[in-house]
Every structure is written in C-alpha cells, then in structure tokens.
Design a protein around this nucleic acid. Structure first.
Lengths: 330, 330
DNA sequence: AAACGATTTCGAAGCGCTTCGACACCTGAC
DNA sequence: GTCAGGTGTCGAAGCGCTTCGAAATCGTTT
C-alpha cells in the first residue's frame, strides 16, 4: 500500500498537481466544479499531504514547540490544563505541538528552531532572569513566553494580571465589610530580588484597599510553620481588629490555616482568608481564591503566537483574574 | 540571515554535498581528514539540517507521537513522569516528540501517521476495549501501547506486571508473619467485564498466598464509603483473625483506612495495609505500596518503539513491580 | 469577427536533503 | 607492468509539495 501523493489525486481527478494544491490551500480561485472533483478524489483516495514535503516547499512546518518545565515539584494540574489547552488551540489553527522539556535548555531551542522543525515556540514558566531570554530575543522564530522576565521589552509574554489579582482580593474583603486587612506575601528575599509578580500583587492589593478606605498592610511571609506562626502572632497582636487575610504564597497557605487555629481564630467566623494559588490547593482546603487560569493562558498564548506567525505584531497580555468564592470568607 | 544549507557546508569544506551527508549520517566511510574538515565547517557555519528536507528524502521524520489522555481526573504525577521520561529517552535516540491528546481520537492518529509527520506512535492509557486498537493493528507505522487491551495479540504493549504485583503484596505480608490476609480489589463489575489487570492481580495474590500456606481471600470492593465500610465489617466478622490487607483500588484506599478506624482496628498495629496505587496517594497516606513505575514505563516504551522502527520484532513487556515499605505494615 | 480582460488551469522550477551508481585512485598480487 | 578489488568521493536523480509565470478558456465589448 504505497502512500497516496498529490500526483495520485491529480491523476484521479484529471487535473494538474498545482490545481490540487490550490484547492487544498485556497490560495487561488478554483471553479466550484473542479474543486469538488478534487475534493472527492482526496476523499476517495484517502489523501493526506506529506508534512515534510509541505514544510520543505512552503517553509512552514505547521508545528509549534511547547517547552515545559517537566521537572518534579511543578504545579501539575496547572501545567496539565495548560498543555491540554495549548494542544487543542493549536489544532484549531491547524498546527501540531512538539513537546520539549526545559532541560534541553538553549541548545534544544536552537536546534528545533534552526532545523525548521517548528514555526514558533511557546515557553512555559519563564523565570525573572531566564537564561533563554536573550536567545529568544534574537531568534528568527516567533515565540511567546508564559510569565514575565525582568525585561519583557520586545517580547510577547502572557501571564495573570497579578496587580488586578491583589486588588480583587482586597475588593472582595471590602465588599464583605472587613475594615482591617493584610496581605501575607512571598518571603522577604523574593521582594528584594525584585520579582515582578510578587510586587505587582502587593501594589494592587494596597491600592485597592486605600481606594476602599481600609486599613491594610502587606507583610512578607516565610515558608516554615514556625516562622508563619510567629509572624501571624505579631500581626494579630499589633492589629487585634484584623479580620481579612490574603495569602499569596502557596507553600505557606497550609501553615497560615494552622496558625490561625492555634491562635484560636476560626475561619471564616473570625477571620476571612483569600488565597492566590493554584486550583488544587484552594480546592482541597475549600479556600476562597484567585486561580491561575491555565486554560485561558494556553489559549491566549497560542492565539498570540499564531498572530506573530502571520507577521502581526503581538504585545504582551495580562489575563484578568477571577475570584472563586469558597468557604473561607464571609 | 539566510539559513545555512548542506550546500553551504559542502562549498565551505570544498567537498560534494553527498560527502557532507555521509559524514553526518555515517552511512558510508569517509576519510578522517575529510570528515574533520566537514565537521569543522558544520561548526563554523552553525549548520542544522532542515528537518522537512531530511524527512522527505529519507522517509524518516525522527519524531514519534505521544498520545496522552490529557483529560481531567488522570493521575497527574504518573502521567508527568511518564511524559518526561519519554521525551528524555526519545532524545537519546535522536528523536523528538509530538504531543497529541487522546481526544483527537482515531482521526488524529490517522492524520499524523499518513502525513509521515511521525515515524511511530506511543499511546498511553490504553483501555481494555479501546477503539483505537483495530486502527493501530493495521497501521503501517510502528506503535507501542501503555496498558494491555483485551486482545494484545500482534501488538507491542508495556505495563506493570500486575500478577507479580499481587504476589509481591502477599509475599510481603507473609514474610511479616501474617497468616490470614485479604485482597480488596476492583468493583464487581470490573471483574465481570474481564478487565485484565484486575484479574491478574487477584490471581497473583491468591497463588502467592497459597504458596506461603496463608489463608487468603479476594473480595471485590465498591467505591463509596458506606459500601466499603459494610464490606469490611462483613469481612472482619467472618474472619476476626485477619491482619493483612491489600487494597487494589485507588478510589477506595481512603475509605478503607476510615473504615478500619471505625472498626477500631489500628494501622499498622492491628492490621497491616498494602496498597497498589499511584505514588502520590500512597505517599500522602504513608502507605506501604506497589508503585506504578512511570519513568521506567516511558523509557521501555520508547526503547521498544525504537526497536520496531529499526524493523526489529518487539514483543510486549511486563515490568517488575517494586514494593515500597512505608508506615502501614509491620 | 476581432480583440480584450477576467477567470481558471497548467507546467516547471525549486525547497534541502538522502541515496544510488559510477568514477578515480590506491594497493597488492600476478 | 597489468589487473582485480578496495576505498573514498562525486554527480544526479529523486522525495512530495508549493508557487510563479504563462497558457488556455470564456464571456464581453467594439
């Protein structure tokens, strides 16, 4: 069973090879009757274009690379949703997805790009000072990053709008009548490092609190139970009237709940808690939270990449956060 | 910056295009001096072969498809480990991985196979009566399945050796001096359906128990707490001397522990519990368990697929289970 | 009836690579 | 000194597709 080529289709339909090509690509007008005849032949013969030949002739592989941080300790549900969404969306644009792991590093990126194996790249989990950023910046192939590096100038990045996320949490607490609130953020060093998303969350939180005329403060938050507990004790000693807490620190979420219990403050009766964290953690603890919209992130990233493939300029994108109300706020 | 082609390399090295090709592929002997000159030119010019052209001329894409069940509710850690291992192993064989989701179904498989986009396929999570199996059976492209369908004849499948897994659990309990043990398996319907792995586990468990002269029984196990609890009550009423339990039912693991608590039997003091389940569940509950060796599964699957790509015959493979001792047995 | 533009189709030239057969050269045997 | 048999290298023919310019066909207009 030799594989069916475009020449077979042309012969079967009684037209030239180029006519078949134009019917399939739609790049030139073909009369309705001829088109139909060709399409019938395609169906009858079960023709599928050879991807290699197509890529060679058209200089378009119709494949994008997805570079995932497939190391342990990643937030799996988020990653999975993201990958699924990327594959599905890419298919809508008639593209396939080549899976790469981040540990091939810059060499891997260079390789697939130079081999014309992919038309564009999607990099997940870009770090603030990511070694791949310089390479991406002067790569001929379009690329889109998930996450914002320190200098995102000239790059296309997609991420959750952490400023809005912080604001949304403050707003939620304000609406529920809380007058004194606090943000437990990332560890001190993260702020010192100038990490974008941590600062943006804090800024959004504080600004929104001010807008609602609330008493608000943001404190860094370490990740061991003892540190969390003592920080919380200090916090409540200094501000006994505190009734609203926003936690933006995945690792500390559990400890915060434990510490509250230890301080004899019930959730949500005495203190309302909002988390900014992945879906699974929030769901497990039934926490009101702002989620990482992984599916939307994937979809939008592909959309932007496709735009760039078509030569369109594509700016960065911040996704609107959404708050899911569960049982930890009232 | 035009991309560098093999012709550029040939010109730079002062040899024929075919010579460069032979140096790179090693398919014909080339003198050491020429080889070195060519390799130097490759390095200097930064040459990367064009994947499309290579695929077209050689009829080998050097890409394999990985079809993952990227739906919610999958066991994520296992899936992730598996994917990582597949990508890493494929790279060792100089292949890349095209990621597909199972929901493209048979059409997707047909498409990538017919387009010569991939040389072979790896399908994860094959069901006992999987709609894709007939297609795979008479697909020209080699493929390897993770999991055994009802009729694995003529297919290459890789999976955990569930028979050995059952036996291993029985052996573990026997060695610890337990004389009366039981296997809580899948729900009744699963056995009626003739599901391979459930039956194999049971058979292995019972045979090993007999070999050690233990009193053993296997009972199906439903997945709601009430059913589990009443089944357990019946079991312990009928066999008060029961001290060893094997649970081969992810969904029921948690309920079993709860039911034991309700019956006033402590783990591991009164009853030892071994689970056959994914790593994360076992780890969370600190259960002695037989794990799914995802990484090894991925590695072996790729190895078999590569063998088939080379035209070698490849039979199915059952992986040796390994038991990890945690805190639920003594 | 000729000429024209619009529409539709065709033919051929690559895209960058692999691979096959052939050629040139060298060695050693006669 | 010639010839068989190796080595090492080259040239050219595709692989199956896209795309460009040109040819063919048609209905209109003059």
């Amino acid at each position: 069973m030799r594989t069916v080529t475009i020449a077979d289709v042309a012969r079967h339909a009684g037209v030239a090879v180029s006519t078949v090509s134009y019917v399939l690509s739609g790049k030139r007008a073909i009369s309705a009757t001829t088109r139909q005849r060709v399409l019938d032949s395609v169906r009858v013969l079960g023709y599928h274009p050879n991807a290699g030949a197509r890529a060679l002739a058209s200089k378009r592989a119709n494949v994008i690379a997805l570079v995932l941080p497939l190391r342990a300790g990643m937030n799996l549900p988020v990653l999975m949703q993201f990958a699924t969404s990327v594959v599905a969306t890419a298919r809508q644009y008639d593209h396939d997805v080549l899976l790469m792991t981040a540990d091939e590093g810059t060499d891997g990126i260079r390789r697939v790009a130079a081999s014309a194996m992919v038309d564009g790249l999607l990099l997940m989990d870009v770090e603030v000072h990511d070694a791949r950023v310089p390479l991406l910046r002067d790569l001929a192939e379009p690329n889109v990053l998930i996450g914002f590096p320190a200098d995102a100038e000239g790059l296309t990045c997609v991420d959750l709008d952490f400023n809005r996320a912080g604001a949304l949490c403050a707003q939620h607490l304000a609406e529920r009548g809380h007058r004194e609130i606090a943000l437990l953020g990332a560890p001190e060093v993260v702020y010192e490092r100038g990490t974008g998303f941590a600062e943006r969350t804090r800024a959004g939180f504080l600004a929104e609190a001010t807008r609602h005329d609330l008493s608000a403060r943001a404190v860094p938050c370490e990740e061991t139970y003892d540190e969390v507990a003592s920080a919380m004790k200090l916090l409540f000693d200094a501000h006994p009237g505190l009734t609203g807490l926003v936690v933006h620190n995945e690792a500390a979420v559990g400890h915060v709940l434990g510490a509250l219990r230890a301080l004899g403050r019930a959730v949500p009766e005495d203190v309302s808690v909002v988390a900014i964290c992945p879906d699974d953690i929030a769901e497990r603890a039934r926490l009101t939270s702002v989620l990482i919209p992984a599916e939307e992130l994937g979809r939008e990233a592909v959309r932007l990449l496709m735009a760039k493939l078509d030569g369109l300029p594509a700016g960065s994108l911040l996704l609107e956060p959404r708050l899911t109300i569960r049982e930890s706020t009232r």
